[in-house]
Design a protein around this nucleic acid. Sequence first.
DNA 1: CCGATCTTTGAGTGCTCATTCTAATTTGAT
DNA 2: ATCAAATTAGAATGAGCACTCAAAGATCGG
Lengths: 182, 182
Amino acid sequence: MRYRAGIETRSRILEATRDLVAQTGLEKTTIKAICERAGILVGSFYNLFDSKEEAILTVVADAIRAVGPHDNGPATLGDLIEAYVAFVEEQEATARVYLMVAVTGGLTDSDIRARMLRHHNRRIDLFTEALTTARPDLGDTDLRQRVEALLAALNGLAFHRLLDPTFDLRRHARGLLAIGAR
Amino acid sequence: MRYRAGIETRSRILEATRDLVAQTGLEKTTIKAICERAGILVGSFYNLFDSKEEAILTVVADAIRAVGPHDNGPATLGDLIEAYVAFVEEQEATARVYLMVAVTGGLTDSDIRARMLRHHNRRIDLFTEALTTARPDLGDTDLRQRVEALLAALNGLAFHRLLDPTFDLRRHARGLLAIGAR
DNA sequence: CCGATCTTTGAGTGCTCATTCTAATTTGAT
DNA sequence: ATCAAATTAGAATGAGCACTCAAAGATCGG
């Protein structure tokens, strides 16, 4: 893959894969459907990817990466929550892929499970750090447990937002701050 | 299905289907795997079920039914939350099926989606009724929105409990009461 | 504008899946 | 014990899947 054509085809494949996974799930996404949506034939797919799994894993990795945040400066718990809400609202298909994997994908595929676990731990650390500055009185175990609950609830709310576009995710997510800050 | 043998085979099939769905997901569950686990051959399966879908739909319907509560007396929000926690802790495989469907299954299969939607609305009504007696000062729209958030967060916490058996679901679920009652 | 390299094409392969069918066996009411 | 109905067995069918391959076409540095 060195010519422009190949690079463009590759990104069209990834886009098609992401949309199909978001729409129909990890398992139901087929090579045929990906190729139809990307406007190519099977041979072209296999010129750029070794397997269907590679394409899906790339999409999942991208989705996990997209959750962010992307600047590494110190953030408050409120900042982190706002960033997550913005991600869900602005990148719906990617957010859908992320949530599917966060919530069920890890159960079946071991590569995805491992990647999601690493991501989750990084995220726990990030949120715990933010909460520590807000609540220096709490012990480390208590902090982490509150953060685990906060993230689980946040994912629950985000899923509801994807099922019901009228659901006011931002408002409810802000309400969750109480779990940690109270 | 009138002889004892048939009835027993049927329940072994449903048990095998439930465990496999809980373990590998709705899509990856195959007839072959179901039959192997149930200790039968394909012919026997199709003597008792018209299709794979019928068996899976039965398992899903059972899981949705199992969430309860089963007595129809008036319950407090605390009672409802405790009942849900008990369900998740005591019927792990069934709870896993329920959560998978609650969170993703509705996206693909329209039968399951419709069933889950009806269940969800019944559940919203039940929880809203409980919250109304605790907070008669709130308007109906506000009440329902709080309950939506509470249930979404509760599902998020329950999923986390299934991924991490050391997670103290009961404690965190009680913490969520604040969302509604505050 | 040449030619080595990359890209596309699309029929073909082998596998697994859900489902069917017929014959053999088991059941249990009489 | 008999026998009609229920149940089980297991090979067979056809559709759809991921993936391969050899040939034709497109690209772009020189």
